[in-house]
Design a protein around this nucleic acid. Sequence first.
DNA 1: ATAAGGAGATCGCCTAAAAAA
DNA 2: GTTTTTTAGGCGATCTCCTTA
Lengths: 341, 341
Amino acid sequence: MTAPKKAGKRKPSMADVARHAGVSVMTVSNAINRPDIVSESTRERVRASMDALDYRNNLVARSLRLALPRQIGYLIGPHRFAADAYMDQFLHDLAATCEQHGRNLTLISTGSHEIEACEDLYYGQMAAGFIVPDIWFGDPRLPALTERGIPFVAYGGDPHDESATWNWVDTDAEKGIILAVDHLTSLGHSELAYLGYPDGLITTRYRRLGYLGACTARGLESSLAPGRVMETGPEFIDLLAAARALLTSDDPPTAIVSATDQHALAVFLVARELGIPVGSGVAVTGFDDSPVAGESGFGITSIRQPKDRIAELLVEILVDEGTAVRHELLEPELIVRSSTV
Amino acid sequence: MTAPKKAGKRKPSMADVARHAGVSVMTVSNAINRPDIVSESTRERVRASMDALDYRNNLVARSLRLALPRQIGYLIGPHRFAADAYMDQFLHDLAATCEQHGRNLTLISTGSHEIEACEDLYYGQMAAGFIVPDIWFGDPRLPALTERGIPFVAYGGDPHDESATWNWVDTDAEKGIILAVDHLTSLGHSELAYLGYPDGLITTRYRRLGYLGACTARGLESSLAPGRVMETGPEFIDLLAAARALLTSDDPPTAIVSATDQHALAVFLVARELGIPVGSGVAVTGFDDSPVAGESGFGITSIRQPKDRIAELLVEILVDEGTAVRHELLEPELIVRSSTV
DNA sequence: ATAAGGAGATCGCCTAAAAAA
DNA sequence: GTTTTTTAGGCGATCTCCTTA
């Protein structure tokens, strides 16, 4: 067992290990990084000394010598309305992915100085690049970073705009909603409605456009009526009000496509209140497959983003630092639960 | 305006600035860190050169030389049930606080190897210490870190257990619930009920104990009946079921003290469904003053944790690294909204 | 004597080339 | 001639002397 260390004691360096093992510093370094060029006996001796001294590689010195920053920055926003824990889970997965690549995820608090903070970290050799989530149309952060030559990847991009000169990764929101519409029509529904946030984030617009496009393509005229396409305010009570308006209208839809799991939850709650059985009475789909959808006990059919793949790509692009700009549009997946029978 | 830089170009060092300004490297360093000992004319010249070359201090080299780690680790859990975005907001605030102290918040993904990851970062001079949230009784992470001599602060601690040898910061959950009970009794309520999670997290137990203690002290016997103290499962549907059981019981409470804002939200939704006006019909309080309470449109009276102060203390303890173990129990604050009239 | 600036060593690690086995 | 190990040198910033006006 390892003895507790006194605080403030200098941590052992390679030189200490070298002395202890009776070899040169270089041999210790090689034993760690290129074990193949060190003889087995020496390697074992070095390893024993490292254990004895409880040696750890000094990551800062290593980073300096290799000119290889260890951190990846993540621009975290102050907070999101009606957060459904999707981003919460995603953040954890992203941190894990960074660790697998020998990096660490560092949060950059968003406020007035986030770009300056990125500059300091990037030019200070601390961060290899940045991940920028929650992209909206005309997001000024993207050109600001580009102009400064700071590597980054946006989580969110416009698939119909080839002109973006920066990397992005996103789920095909349009296609996701189309999956939901197709699923519902295949169940016999022809009176649909859409419930979501107004445009702002890129993904929000494409979720709405996906609905409009799918209904148009399938000739579902009535599902495109003004009262059938609802855009809500950010507060949860707004979602409930919109859901209620849909379900109590003169010509209520038999199925509701929601832009988020929170909207779907709102439909669930209002339907319960009105005595409408969800699934058989009114079908509803969500988006993101957050815990609200699968683990709230409601069983909400939802559209899953390939979280793991997204995290992998975001990190990979920053670590590899290829020259070509990458736009990665990923396939969503429909997760069917009891809210659509 | 700054010209865009070519990727891969070497970043200017102090030596470059020194050459450009016609001074020694040391003078540049002094101009940055101890401007008072450099003459004004020289200082200006150096500053102009720094601007011209777009110089940034290499944080890695600085960290190595000073043996001063720049990062503070945060052990982020995979996900929380019924997340109410409190932790979400808190994480952002914490990152901002770290930045104010010249540090950065690094996420350590929790899984099987989090302690090892902490070791690598701490002994690798990368992280000064760690913040451990979501503390449960007998949490093995705390002794594991202590034993290894790794500095950390827990966000969550047992105020009635003096024996903990580690730093912690927490809000006085008991007192918070007592504030809620007192508020409700002062409004004339004497038939209360409690709605929360079963024990597990330290704060969860003390929220419940706070309720039991307050009712006992005030002689509210009926509010301590088994059917009045509800512990729910983690899924949102469980919260709704418990709220329904309370509101539809033979002897329903006139006020419900909830351990989280999510529980209070559940009460709100069920009350609406039952046609009971919240506030006048049944009063309800939440906990954490998350966006659900204040920004959901419901107006839920809630108990606010002093978020800013907590973040400040957590970071301060790690940055100062005093020798004495600190246990900081902070005062909560009652935020009255329309859910209690 | 004081104030301003400079030369050299150092933090811990790794690359490249030379030396030893 | 190969395999193994060592000797220099330097990444970029800072600290400790030390020199010069």
